[in-house]
Amino acid sequence: MDILVVDDEPYIQRSLSFVLRKEGFQVEVASNGEEGLKKARELKPKVILLDVMMPKLNGFNTCRAIKSDNELKESYVILLTGKGQEIDKERAIKEGANEFMSKPFSPKEIVTKIRTILGVPK
């Protein structure tokens, strides 16, 4: 499994999964932190795109759970947030996220980033 997209906004789920699939990646989606964690444990994705503001289990807590799970901690976590604030960046680093992206972002940006992470040449 390549990529897991965890976001409660259906349109973001839809656009990210559409573009990434179009680029040839295997993609799964989840709508909240709890579901995301469950799917991550099940599918062991290489990259997890994780929204911060989500019901049930927010992105920070999901990230912490992922990073403290021995089988998952190697997954590359990119936190997605609607607020480009310093405090979020600090928190993202503290919770062990590998990267941090603020919305709105272009699908191209994500594609480029994931190609680099997974070592896939264009």
Partner: peptide, 25 residues
């Protein structure tokens, strides 16, 4: 203000993503 900026970002983000997708593919 932070609430509104969040509320604005979400739809803007969708509009930007989908229009880009339609243009690129």
């Amino acid at each position: 203000i932070s609430g509104v900026s969040h509320e604005i970002r979400s739809p803007l983000s969708s509009i930007r993503s989908f229009s880009e997708i339609l243009l690129n593919y």
